[in-house]
């Protein structure tokens, strides 16, 4: 009976240690579990892939450093696909750290695909105001974002000369860790203007976006790190997403194992102990 008591009251430091090992070891020694493509990820890929060259994609960085492990791989995979397809990429941010991540993604991806700043992609940075920014942007991008992150006048950036309002945007993608984010785009842009909206969110935010998927307000969705890994599979460029999936798989398994051990001991012990 003592064993059952021990199994019901494992020291939290042991749990922390085993969980840490379950994350660190797969990162150091990858297992390479195969990642299947879900329909939601396929839908996002198809939207980008079917756009003709020269189409304009608005990619919004609506997240902070805390969500970077899930959303940075999504941003890299999407940016790689967009620039590789010779689409025009306009990056903005509704969260203040987003613009810095946009710079990092561009600095990583653009040299690989030979994209040129100002001609193929641009980073217009962050504006405070949340939903108001989107309403303003839909009417006049140049007035809402008069300068890019390098303080170059938006009007003087070659690719921005013909991109002035939401009518010039062919696809909106929001990578979002909360509000303002993908939901704000659906409510403020999707409800008022005929532009397709898709995006990616952290895994914990997925349930909140499912009603929008079912209603058709949102087309496709990248779900956390697994969404990034699936997208990397689709574009055949393994990256941070696929690299993290082993760690996520094993850590999920460890948490489930602890829950099951606690319950087995609880049931075997006659449900007396807490």
């Amino acid at each position: 009976m003592k064993l059952l008591e021990i199994l019901q009251n494992i020291d939290r430091r042991i749990i922390y240690l085993i969980l840490a090992l379950s994350i660190i070891l797969p990162l150091l020694f990858p297992i390479g579990f195969p990642v299947d493509i879900t329909q939601n990820t396929q839908d996002v890929y198809d939207l980008v892939d079917k756009l003709p060259a020269g189409s304009v994609v608005l990619l919004s960085y609506d997240w902070d450093a805390a969500s970077a492990p899930e959303l940075l791989p999504q941003a890299e995979a999407l940016t790689r696909h967009i620039l590789d397809k010779k689409l025009k990429l306009v990056a903005i941010a509704l969260w203040n750290q987003g613009a810095t991540f946009a710079d990092r993604v561009h600095n990583t991806v653009a040299p690989e695909v030979g994209a040129v700043y100002g001609e193929d992609y641009v980073n217009l940075g962050y504006r405070p105001g949340q939903a108001v920014v989107l309403n303003s942007l839909a009417r006049d991008i140049h007035a809402t974002f008069p300068e890019d992150v390098a303080r170059t006048k938006t009007a003087s950036i070659p690719m921005m000369k013909d991109i002035r309002s939401i009518e010039d945007i062919d696809l909106v993608i929001s990578l979002s860790a909360g509000d303002p984010g993908l939901r704000t785009y659906i409510e403020q842009i999707g409800a008022q203007y005929p532009v397709t909206i898709t995006g990616g969110v952290t895994a914990v935010s997925v349930p909140g976006m499912l009603p929008y998927l079912q209603s058709g307000d949102l087309v496709g969705l990248l779900a956390g790190m697994s969404g990034a890994a699936e997208y990397e599979n689709l574009i055949d460029r393994p990256g941070l997403g696929l690299g993290g999936m082993d760690a996520q798989s094993i850590s999920h398994l460890v948490i489930i194992a602890f829950i099951l051990i606690g319950n087995i001991a609880y049931l075997a012990g006659g449900r007396k102990k807490k």
């Binding site: 579990f33 697994s226 999936m245 996520q248 798989s249 319950n263």
Partner: peptide, 17 residues
């Protein structure tokens, strides 16, 4: 509990394995 286990495993590649 059952729902949580199914959803957690369903969200990772190891679940399908």
């Amino acid at each position: 509990l059952v729902s949580a286990v199914v959803v957690m495993l369903g969200a990772t590649p190891i679940g399908a394995k």
